[in-house]
Structures are given as C-alpha cells and as structure tokens.
Design a protein around this nucleic acid. Structure first.
Lengths: 245, 245
DNA sequence: GTTAAGTAAATCGTTGACAATCTCCAGTCA
DNA sequence: TGACTGGAGATTGTCAACGATTTACTTAAC
C-alpha cells in the first residue's frame, strides 16, 4: 500500500521531464486535485509563476498540457479554469472507464501467469477483510492497485495512459466518503467474478464482469449522491453542478 | 452589421482556432499527417516559426499539445520528433481502437433511432457497391463516416475525442493502398453484422461485432504488410520500423 | 589510420517586456 | 432608480533576447 501511494505521487511525472514546465505541471496538477484550486476557479498565470518562482512561459506550457488532459478549460483571452464536472460528465467518464476496464480484462486473459493470478487473489482477499470490517480507508488503495495491476498486465501503454488520465479527471469530482453500507462487499463480490473470468481465461466473461463492475460502481455512486443531495436539499437548484466536499 | 458580427463571432471552437498557437498547431498537424515532416524527423522550432511567420512561443505551445496527443515525441534539450510507430505501437492502437469501437456500438444500441438506422443502412449499401467494384477510393470515406456516425450517436464526448485522437495517431502509419483483394468485401460483411446487432438492440452482439471488425482489420492490414515487406525485402532490417508510402 | 579531445555552431529552455484584450468600477444620462 | 458609456487596472497573447545544453566538426595524439 505504501508502494501504491509512493508510486502514484512522486517520480513518474517529475522524471518525465526534468524541465521546469514538467515540474510546474505536476505542481499545478497537485493544486487542482488537492482542491486548493477550486473547481471552476481561474488559474492565474502570474500568480502561479510568482508562487513557484519561475517565469510565465513554463506555466503556460504546463497549463496547455493540462487543458489537453482535460483538467483545465481554456477560454481565449480570458484564461484557464479548473474544469467543473456536471452529472453528464461523470456519466461519460464512468462509461468510458467501464469500456477501458472491460477491454483490459479481456486482453489480460491471454497473457496472465499463475504468479500474477496469485497476486490478484491476495489483493481481493485483503479487500474481503476490509469489506467485512467496513473499512473504506484500507479498502480503497487495494482496490486501486487491483485494477492497476490488471491494467499494466495488458502491456498496452496507450490503454494505460488513457485510463490513468480518466482517473485523474474523475478525481475532479470529489466523491470520497460517498460509500453506502453494502458498497464494499458488493464491489468485492464483483472482483471475485473478475478473478474467476481471468482464471478460466474467458475473455468475454472478463469483459462483462469488468464492464459491469464499473457500471455498478456508477450506480452505487449516484445512489449515494442522490441520497445526499436530497437530504441536504437546501441548495437544490445547483445540486447537480456541485462538487462534493 | 449583423453580417459582420455573424461572420466574426462564429463558435467557441473557431475562436480557439483563431488563437495563433491553435493555427500553428493545426498547421504542424497537417505537415505531419501529409508526410511533409517525415516520421522520425526532427521538428525544428525556429524553422517552423520562420516558415509560418510567427515567434517560437506559439510553436512551442503547439508542439507540446501535439506531444500530449501522441503525434510528436519530446526529448528534453534535444527537441521534438515526429513519432515513429513500430509494429507494437500499431497493435496497441488497433487493440484500443477495437475496444472503443466495441464500446461505442454497445452504447448506441440503447439510443439509436430508426432514422439513424436508415442512415447507417444507406452507408453500408454504398459500401456494398464500392466493394463489388473493388473501388477503395470510394469505399474509404464512407467507411470513415459509418464509424463516425456510430461514434457520435454515443453522445460521449470523451469517447469521441479519444477515438479521433487514435485515428490521427494511426495515420502516422501510412497504410493507404495496403488493401488485399477481398478486404473490402470482408470488411463490409462485418458492417452488416454490426448493423444487425444494432437492429436487434443487442448490446453484447454490438460490442462483439464491432470489436472483431477492428481486430479483423488489424489482421488484414498486417497480412498485407507482411506480404509487402517480404516481397520487397531489400531493406529488410528496418522493415518493421518503416512507414509505407 | 583510428580514436579522443576541444572548439564552434546550432538548438532548446527560460526569461522579461510589450501589445492586445478583457474586467470592473465610476460617472453620466434618461 | 436603472442602464449605458468611458477609462483605469489587470490579465493574457506574443515577441525578441539571453544562457545552457547538445551536436558536429576540426585537430591532435597514439
């Protein structure tokens, strides 16, 4: 688990470019995903440049990269804004993620080794424990690792890149803590189904179980979201546009 | 007056293109896809800037965007190079494209109208004619339109964007003219199968037929490619890295 | 004749400044 | 009182120049 967090945060993005714009980009990305730059808020080039002690050039380059990645919106002559996701956006991300997850599962059936299967089994077993205890904090990182392992086993760098970009975009929509009581158990039951499909090297079943797993995740998320917005329906009119804190 | 405003304020998308770096980017993209900038060749910022009559700033921005999109490779302190696809890259693109195409097909089953079905039928019928005549030049654009219609019917902007980026990347690998005698007929038979699946609103069949269509396309392409490289095996050592003219 | 070091040219990465555009607020008029 | 016009301030878009790194060529030594 420390592996997982240590892998996602530091090296890859910075090693990618020793150049300033690469560092700046990673910095801005952190500011966005941490929520320090609020959704819909403007990203002031001067302010960022001043804060990071560099010129505006690298900041501009970094912003353009993040626009391309979907984390920022660019309005000419007005600046770049932290992207705000509405419900339709989230559905799009889920649907695409479901497709990519399914594709990853089906591709992996042809290449997975028994050692790699063992690793996946270990992760699912760990999630069984977390789910039984209702411990989301220990469940979540293992869940990420489970899907990341399958993704990497495809050996398809473009698939990996697309999927990870999607995950980052999804983080714009803050849904941590949006877990219903049975969500963990249901989710891991689906993991077991995926595991079975991989075990039998059944690419069709691997696609189906993986695809449905994400689609069920979408349903679980929206169910919890709707329950929350109905409960605190004070600001009901903009509820579908609001990000959750 | 109304004429002027109507002409000068068209759409958001065009405003973005009006930005100098946007124009430059489109220009470089054309140079790459037309082959004027050869695969593996270096893109000289100064030369491009001079040629287009702008400063290096917009050229840099455009290049970074194209790097993000996958059309250029960036090597720090050395410059950007037109991406060269090897066989593994092409397989990756095909696999991912197959998955996205399948996803598009399965998503569309739930929303397609009879009028839209009619349009697809018309396109497939046109391809039947082209295939019978062995006319690739008339077959190709209709084929593109057929898949693009399905893609747009999904209403998933992220799926559309990912797919189109993949298509552009694929064009780096020049395979026009790489068509075997039966390719058109086989391809359109698969189109018919996709049509049937959509007709029955069978999302599983829509995924399968669409996915396999692209995978068969991959096999057809590699078969033709291998035949070509074996025939003219003069420069055999770099054959798997060479682009086809 | 071949290899290695050193120098010069070229190119990239970054910076600061200037011009164009937009936003915001005050002032004016109906 | 409300809406419109004007200008000041702020921000983005673009440019030209400087320093750092890489590449290529020349020269010298083995």
């Amino acid at each position: 688990m420390t592996d997982a967090t240590a892998r996602t945060i530091p090296t890859v993005a910075q090693m990618r470019e020793n150049s300033l714009s690469g560092v700046v980009r990673h910095e801005i990305e952190t500011l966005i995903l941490s929520g320090e730059l609020p959704a819909g808020g403007r990203v002031n080039e001067n302010a960022i440049a001043l804060r990071l002690g560099v010129s505006r050039g690298p900041v501009r380059e970094a912003c353009r990269g993040l626009v391309e990645q979907g984390l920022l919106d660019l309005i000419p002559n007005r600046g770049v804004f932290v992207r705000r996701l509405d419900r339709h956006d989230v559905e799009e991300v889920y649907d695409l993620r479901a497709g990519l997850t399914g594709l990853a599962g089906s591709l992996v059936t042809a290449r997975i080794t028994s050692a790699e299967m063992d690793r996946l089994r270990t992760l699912v077993a760990a999630m069984d424990v977390s789910a039984a205890a209702g411990d989301f904090r220990s469940f979540y990182p293992v869940n990420l690792e489970f899907h990341d392992v399958i993704l990497q086993l495809t050996g398809n760098s473009r698939l990996i890149k697309s999927y990870r970009a999607l995950i980052k975009e999804f983080q714009l929509f803050r849904t941590h803590g949006l877990v219903q009581p049975n969500a963990l158990r249901e989710s891991n039951e689906e993991h077991h189904a995926i595991l079975d499909a991989l075990e039998h090297r059944d690419s069709v079943a691997a696609y189906d179980t993986s695809y449905r797993h994400v689609q069920h995740g979408k349903q679980r998320m929206f169910a919890a979201f709707d329950k929350l917005t109905q409960a605190g329906a004070a600001s009901a009119d903009g509820a579908h546009n609001r990000t959750i804190e």
